[in-house]
Simulated assay, not measured.
Amino acid sequence: MSAEQEAGAVDSWRTTLPCTRAEAEAIDAADDLAIDAVLMTSETVEDDREHWRLDAYSEARPDAAMLAAIRALVPSAADVEPEVVPLTAQDWVAMSQQGLEPIREGRFVVHTSAHPVDPPAGGRAFLIDAGQAFGTGHHATTVGCLAMLDGLAGRTVTNAIDVGTGTGLLAFAVRHLWPGAQVMATDIDPAAVTVTRQNAAVNGVEGVALVVADGALDDAIAARAPFDLVIANILAGPLVSMAPELAAIAAPGAAIVLAGLLETQRAQVVAAFEACGATLEAVDRRGDWTILRLTAGAERYVPKTPVDPKGRDGWALDI
């Protein structure tokens, strides 16, 4: 019996190479890389442009052609031998929890099953395990959004929406802060909506309306609009292209919380929303990432031309 068999049934393989952030962003932005593997990039040193990694997950052990294709994505690692590791179901469970210690922000604490904690006094603990959707609460953008929401606690909110909800964490935080408000959580990915429903049950969160929707143009969203709190933790490109539709569902004077953008992308995102009548109110910078809070205009925004979802950039889920 091989060592791999002794460790459990191998169901996939991980190939790892170091890369730079520029290479990681290029990989993430590519539509079709023609590699039969799931590609994931991540920081190895926080806020360091040169120390990132590429992990390629494949069902079969990578052959020479796949290794060559993966190598071609990261020229900076031309002299590095790829690390190829077999993975079992037990490996996936361990990786999903690795390094995910509880995160505390304001009156919230976010934890995984591997790191149970008690809720803070007067606050709320959320159990969010790593799974099929983004948004465990351990990325700077999600933590920054929690801080922004915590800072709005004294504000009156009656109707809120979390666009690109991922795991549902931000929608759950809204439910805690404003228990009497209507709360809607949407995502383009049906799996994310399923995960959010499961997380709501685990955390005893009720009353969050869940919708699978591309952006903010769905009929179910329009029927609930306007919202006095709009949250979108996605990516800079989608935020810019979706600015008119997000502004259109915001009530006059609504709070708009945006995240998923780098500090270098802030000006472009702010300009897109200012063109829709919004005003920048607060900025929370966390390393390279920036979280924005804007206020919608005094009158509800009406797009100057019809918004065509086919004409805007593709967008991603919660980080």
Results as ranks from 00 to 15, higher is better:
D228T: 03
A248S: 14
L210I: 06
L262G: 11
P303W: 08
D55E: 12
A200S: 11
L127Y: 01
L235M: 15
N159R: 14
R21D: 14
E43H: 04
L229H: 01
N203G: 08
R224Y: 02
S42L: 10
A181D: 08
V183F: 08
A191I: 10
P120I: 07
P82K: 06
A30T: 05
E81M: 09
L217T: 12
G314R: 14
L67G: 07
A64M: 10
A130N: 13
F273H: 08
A171W: 11
G215I: 03
A223G: 09
A72R: 08
A232P: 02
A30Y: 00
G166L: 08
A173L: 11
A24T: 09
G164D: 00
Q90H: 14
L229A: 01
S12E: 13
R300W: 10
T15S: 12
F134W: 05
A255T: 12
V195G: 01
W52Q: 03
A272K: 00
R285G: 11
I27C: 01
G237T: 14
R14V: 15
A201D: 14
A153C: 09
E23D: 05
A26C: 04
D228A: 03
P238Y: 06
P119L: 07
V93G: 07
A65I: 11
A267F: 06
I291F: 02
I221G: 02
V84E: 05
F108L: 09
D32S: 14
W178H: 07
A222R: 15
A153P: 09
T44G: 08
F126E: 04
V110K: 06
A153Q: 10
V269A: 05
F134V: 02
V10Y: 02
M1R: 13
A22S: 13
G154W: 05
L149A: 01
A133H: 05
A140H: 09
F108N: 01
A78D: 13
D47C: 04
L149Y: 04
H115Q: 13
T186W: 07
K310G: 15
Q5Y: 06
A298H: 13
A298R: 12
D48C: 07
D129N: 11
W289M: 06
L280M: 00
A254I: 05
V307G: 07
W178R: 06
I291K: 00
L170S: 00
A34M: 10
L229I: 00
A243T: 08
T142P: 02
A272Q: 01
A222D: 14
D318P: 15
L261A: 13
F126V: 03
T279F: 07
T44R: 15
R124W: 10
D91V: 10
W92Y: 09
D79F: 12
R197P: 03
A192D: 03
I231G: 01
W13H: 04
R155T: 12
A248V: 10
D219L: 05
